[in-house]
Design a protein around this nucleic acid. Sequence first.
RNA 1: GGGCGCGUAGCUCAAUUGGUUAGAGCACCGGACUGUCGAUCCGGAGGUUACGGGUUCGAUCCCCGCCGCGCUCGCCA
Length: 593
Amino acid sequence: MSLRTHTCGELRASHIDQPATLAGWVENRRDHGGVFFIDIRDRYGVTQVVFNPGTDAHKRASEVGPEYCIHVAGMVRRRPDGTVNKERGTGEIEVVAQSLEILNASKTPPFEIVDRIDTAPELRMKYRYLDLRRRPMQRALVARAEFCRALRNHLASQQFVEVETPMLTKATPEGARDYLVPSRVHAGHFYALPQSPQIFKQILMIAGMDRYFQVARCLRDEDLRADRQPEFTQIDLEMSFVEPEDVWAQVEGSISAGFAAAFGVDLQPPFPRIAYKEAMLKYGIDKPDLRFGMQFVDLTDYSKSCNFKVFREAADSAGLVGGGIVRGVNAKGAGGWSRKEIDALSTFAQEHGGKGVAWLRVVESGLDGSIAKFFSDGEKVTIREMLAGQPGDLLLFGAGDETTVNGVMGPLRHHLGDKLGLRKFGTFKCAWIRDFPMFERNTKTGAIEPTNHPFTSPTESDLNRLTEKLQNDPLSLGGRGYDLVMNGWELGSGSIRIHRRDMQERIFEFLGLKREEYEAKFGFLLEALEYGAPPHGGFAYGVDRTIALGLGLDSLRDAVAFPKTSAAADPMTGAPSPVSDEQLRDVHIRTIE
RNA sequence: GGGCGCGUAGCUCAAUUGGUUAGAGCACCGGACUGUCGAUCCGGAGGUUACGGGUUCGAUCCCCGCCGCGCUCGCCA
């Protein structure tokens, strides 16, 4: 027989005068000398239990402490007038204890099990079982499970097949660093844990599975960030015989089902589709927060003939390689910011690779501020009109090469949105960013690299000019890749893939891979493409990040049951740890130093 | 690998220019109290100031090293 008849969140006025037994943890106890209250907690809620003096249960109740695991039997009773707790679902009733059993005592916990805590993350991770007893953490785990369950149901209804791909797979030297697993059977050989199931899902399409998805664990041995864990989960899907719109519709349907189930939020698909170039022009970033407008105004053409030398010189080189642009943005209502606040924006710009930010305040008499003196009266009127400036607005400008200006202005727009209270939790704005270029230049090394990954197909309209573009102007080559963004976060990315061997080889070779190299790494995929591989494409996005967004969590760690510290360690288990010499011998490993 | 910050009671933090016995809130322990719900009131205990070294009459404070944590740059196709 079960140790309980009800959960701690279940009892209502309708249960009055019924017997009930509850099991859970001691949330709180209040000893009045005579009457004694214990709040008993489980996953479902909290119920007040009353112990009257003179009873055996009352005697036992004085022995329990916080987080004791207890079992209580008694009668449900309406609370006396004036003692109803309206903040609690069970607040109309209480259980009058007839017996209390201590199922297990508890040491005094290292931190209090309360909703709001500011305990160091390391301590919370060391005692994760206590941290996970907290309501917000349990809510997050439940929401995550609900999200995935709704998503599975939706995708199943759309004929998707859930397939598990290997955890022990083949190392790929490019991309992120692999987690390696030594092989016992093959001395000196190693498996790699998957960075993503990318190639396997393409193989599944070649196998004719047509629609695949997986809640996939991915692992990358790179240094951590607040929004990055070494192991994480992606919703990974792939479809055959599709255009991007087909993929987007399935992602929209499934993520919306997940959001509705987990967070009670309607994402209102279909999401806007925004070309990469348009996003860069209007927002300076490929993951714009669309909860607010504040679109950029392109002043490049206008600046070619203006008096302000900084703008004019940037505009004069427009269109050339590495050429300049001039962009303005109206931070509506920020005109009242202090000089100190405005100067802080320049510091922000410097942190993002710029020299600073030019600004003008809109006042009744016109424009006022650091660069006002460089413009004629007529120019001031025009600039104000172009940016729709009203008194009380702050106009901000970036001029210089495109990469630098966007590198500053894109994040600056989000920063302004934060400061102006335009990015508050509660609304969710998604968009597809489409038509990414095939390649981009690595600003550090100067090398040309794939924007997404080397399996992305070039845009169809560029196919007949592929050779010419690869030779002369590879950065102008369009790709069939796309990202899903929400509230200024990149949730995930995908593409229509290359499905022909000759095309895949040309891309590898363009990227500087020699035949022996790509044969060794991807020969099996290239060969598979020769057996009637269908056109296919797909998408993958981060579950941890999605849950954190949906719940408004400060840290990705709170969306993960058992996360790792910034040094990729687990304070609870002590992983990673040394292993015995025997274990090392088995896998033919000798450590150095 | 680099930069910045933090490390003091179980937890979160304080401690004047380097100066007497390192404090507070919460938690914990004891006592009082018959309707609380962050109960209240009274009392108590609790410290290798992360660790190792140095400077100094004297170090929580200054210096060097080291470990851990957090943020970040590199990195993350």
